[in-house]
Design a protein around this nucleic acid. Structure first.
Length: 569
RNA sequence: CGGGGCGUGGCGCAGUCCGGCUAGCGCGCUUGGUUCGGGACCAAGAGGCCGGGGGUUCGAAUCCCCCCGCCCCGACCA
């Protein structure tokens, strides 16, 4: 395309609303503009990049037998009431004038179609996918395109007759996703994840390391263990039992509120101090016991307690129910609470915990003797440096951006929607589903996060809006214009996507700056200087390396460079 | 939803505390000329309900009240 006829509004200065590199560059390079919080208009250059990602997705989805659909974004509200997802907090945006909602995902629609037309095990398995705009009632959009209220997603759904089939479809997706992200040139990794409100039996996330990510993951460099902090575990040992088992004894702890204060007061480590944290699970008060100063992990707590909302108990309720304040709560003699403990406390004795009287604690607590527990669960949050659960090497905890998520859903949605089939024995069974998503904008933004410098974007060949950027240094020089035009035509005829900066209104300097900002993999600079020797300059954006190439050889040279396959990771 | 910041030509900002001439600066834009390989120069221009509403005042971008929008931190995150 000719630059002079293409809408590429570049910005010299950094827009004040953008704080992370990908956001700044997507605006500066004219890929997109923000309409309102979390909603972006994609301009020609940005949309081209997104189409590149979408095409890769199509190819890889088709390769595993996926069939492309286009489901409606407008859904009847009733469909979401049927699956009990209408009122999940911060999920659905709705239409005021009708009982319609904007779909945040498409399990419901898939289930609806399947319920009508999948009748026999012979109709299964199926992989249905689409690339479509999703809407979400995001409370706080942020980081440019990384968390928006409207975004484009490749979502696919597998339908199976057996659990083994689901495993197979899930595995196929995992592999397809690896190929997709590899082809996109992303440096990514896979973590075990929580299935959260989606339900289901297993899930993994595809992650990109980034300080600007809002997910936190624990990883082991030695054995490759990786998990979202929501589910990550560590090899930290339980605190076990100690020899003497004295009777429980109350003692005074004036003004002690936190575990650290208690440890300081007692002049001991926090090892045998049991921290009590108080929550509500629906209407049920719950006391959670943790070893020392371990941090409660709410995702794990939610999973352990089962269906229903989980939230911290407010201070007033706590006082009414226990007669004490936060720092003095404990499990012994506590009435009306469900009590759960972290696994590190399994069978422990000799513990110190709150006495349910302000400024008083109890010592010599034996969980097996003194407390009516509802069980031990893994409830703590892993911290950096703790031993890996698989190999004991220290774990590192870092931020990451989620670019894909795969779920084994099971039968939750098919049951709610009546999506069943007849098995070989003529029995009605719910279809076993999986769902799999990849955010298109996130692919683009993550690539830019991973591939830019102080001058601009550095596109890889797979996602670049154009493979080549021809710069006519001067449009006043006949020879330059002629050669640049010839090359542009030759490249185009050879099927090489080319952006030709043919602007006569700006100086060469502006074109060079824009070319670096836009970041196409190869720049071909046509100018008087080189043409005296019948040469043009070829610059690799990634390395800055420049070479003089005879005009007659440029096409061939480019072709071979563009054919180079990136190393598969 | 809690905390913080911001809102002034297309973009980036100053002016707001302490009210006062015609609301400034840089970039961009238009026209003419000179330049022409790393964001050129000269000259002349265009472009503003100072986020919105209400109030105080002789007088409001500036003070007071209400509202809206955007960004950041937290809560939340299919």
């Amino acid at each position: 395309m000719r630059f002079s006829k293409t809408f590429i509004p570049t910005l010299k200065e950094i827009p004040s609303d953008a704080s992370i590199p990908s956001h700044q560059l997507m605006l500066r390079a004219g890929l997109m503009r923000q309409l309102t919080a979390g909603v972006y208009a994609y301009l020609p250059l940005g949309y081209r990049a997104m189409l590149k990602a979408a095409q890769i997705l199509r190819e890889e989805m088709n390769a595993i037998g996926g069939q492309e659909f286009h489901f409606p974004a407008l859904n009847p509200e009733s469909l979401w009431i049927q699956t009990n997802r209408r009122h999940i907090p911060n999920l659905i945006l709705s239409i005021k004038e009708r009982d319609l909602v904007l779909a945040p995902t498409h399990e419901e629609v898939v289930g609806w179609i399947a319920s009508m037309h999948i009748q026999s095990y012979k109709d299964l398995p199926q992989i249905w996918y689409q690339i479509q705009t999703k809407f979400r009632n995001e409370p706080r959009p942020r980081s440019g395109v990384l968390r928006g209220r409207q975004f484009i997603m490749k979502d696919s759904y597998s339908l199976d007759a057996t659990w083994e089939g689901l495993d197979e479809r899930y595995q196929m997706h995992a592999e397809a996703y690896r190929r997709v992200f590899t082809r996109c040139g992303l440096d990514f990794f896979v973590v075990g994840a929580s299935s959260g409100a989606m339900g289901g039996s297993g899930s993994q996330e595809f992650m990109v390391d980034s300080e600007n990510g809002e997910d936190t993951v624990a990883r082991c460099k030695q054995c490759g263990y990786a998990a979202n902090l929501e589910v990550a575990t560590s090899g930290l040992k339980g605190i076990g039992r100690i020899g003497e088992n004295k009777p429980v004894e109350e003692f005074s702890t004036p003004n002690v509120r936190t575990i650290d204060e208690l440890a300081a007061f007692l002049k001991t480590s926090d090892e045998r101090l049991a921290k009590s944290v108080v929550y509500r699970h629906g209407d049920t008060p719950v006391l959670i016991l943790l070893a020392g100063n371990d941090q409660l992990n709410e995702s794990k707590l939610t999973a352990a307690l089962g269906e229903g909302p989980v939230r911290p108990m407010d201070a007033g309720d706590l006082r009414n129910l226990t007669g004490a304040d936060g720092g003095s709560i404990g499990p012994v003699g506590l009435k009306g609470f469900r009590i759960v403990a972290d696994k590190r406390l399994e069978g422990a004795n000799g513990l110190i915990s709150g006495a349910n009287r302000n400024d008083r604690h109890l010592k010599n607590i034996d969980l097996t003797r003194d407390v009516r527990l509802d069980g031990y669960f893994d409830l703590r949050t892993v911290a950096s440096g703790e031993p890996c659960p698989q190999c004991e090497a220290p774990l590192t905890v870092t931020n990451a951006i989620e670019i894909g998520h795969i779920f084994k859903l099971g039968t939750k949605y098919s049951e709610a929607l009546g999506a069943t089939f007849l098995d070989e024995n003529g029995r009605t069974q719910p279809i076993i589903m999986g769902s799999y998503g990849i955010g298109i904008e996130r692919i683009i933004a993550c690539h830019i996060e991973q591939s830019h410098d102080e001058h601009g974007i550095i596109w890889n060949k797979a996602l670049a809006p154009f493979a080549v950027h021809i710069i006519a240094a001067s449009m006043n020089n006949k020879e330059t214009v002629l050669t640049a035009n010839q090359l542009y035509r030759a490249f185009s005829e050879a099927g090489i996507e080319t952006l030709f900066d043919d602007r006569s209104s700006v100086t060469a300097g502006v074109k060079f700056k824009d070319a670096d900002l836009l970041g196409m993999p190869f720049q071909i600079i046509v100018g008087e200087r080189g043409l005296r020797e019948k040469k043009v300059e070829m610059k690799r954006r990634a390395t800055g390396e420049r070479t003089q190439v005879p005009v007659d050889d440029v096409l061939m040279t480019l072709k071979s460079l563009l054919a180079e396959k990136p190393a598969l990771s």
